[in-house]
């Protein structure tokens, strides 16, 4: 059990920055992304007994971080719905913020599985097996999922440019 704890810590130290980018893409706010990474790794440490040892530790941790980000977004959406005044701003976005928002809007149009697959590939450099393991899908479907995600994203962005 201590060996696994050491492995989790090693992943955190080696890949923490990549997981942070991954969470940032998912959530959009650096503070909240940092929080999701911390929570995800904490969850992995806390429930490490449930790790079966059959797949990659990184894929298992990625699932924990995805769940943490999902929980955080769900809580935030609920809170925003309850009180729209919280977090609202009277400042207009800068040009670069608009660009980010266009990409974000396009990404959000993707089905969740495609989005997660895309992010795992791009930000964490996961191979097909690790993506399949993280998302609980067949390895054979990863390539098609990524291709569909890329095509849909390109189409969305192209529409915006028109």
């Amino acid at each position: 059990m201590n060996r696994l704890l050491g492995e989790i810590e090693a992943v955190y130290r080696r890949r923490g920055a990549d997981f942070f980018r991954f969470a940032l893409a998912r959530i959009g706010e650096p503070e909240a992304a940092h929080d999701a990474v911390q929570e995800g790794f904490a969850k992995a440490v806390h429930s490490r007994r449930s790790y079966r040892g059959t797949g990659s530790v990184e894929a298992w941790i990625a699932r924990c971080v995805i769940n943490a980000a999902h929980d955080l977004l769900r809580r935030r959406t609920a809170a925003d719905n309850a009180d729209p005044g919280i977090g609202s701003s009277s400042l207009g976005p800068s040009t670069s913020e608009i660009d980010v928002e266009i990409v974000r809007a396009a990404v959000m149009q993707l089905p969740q599985r495609q989005r997660n697959a895309l992010f795992l590939r791009f930000y964490l450099d996961f191979d097909y097996a690790a993506i399949a393991e993280t998302l609980g899908i067949e390895v054979g479907t990863v390539s098609a999922t990524l291709h569909a995600a890329r095509a849909a994203l390109a189409e969305q962005l192209q529409e915006v440019k028109r």
């Binding site: 980018r21 940032l24 650096p30 911390q38 990409v103 974000r104």
Partner: peptide, 21 residues
């Protein structure tokens, strides 16, 4: 476009916080 979505920002690792959580 994914580069735009999540630029490389400074990452502040805090393993003690992970363990505490």
């Amino acid at each position: 476009p994914l580069e735009t979505l999540a630029p490389e920002l400074p990452w502040a690792p805090d393993w003690a916080d992970v363990v505490a959580r």
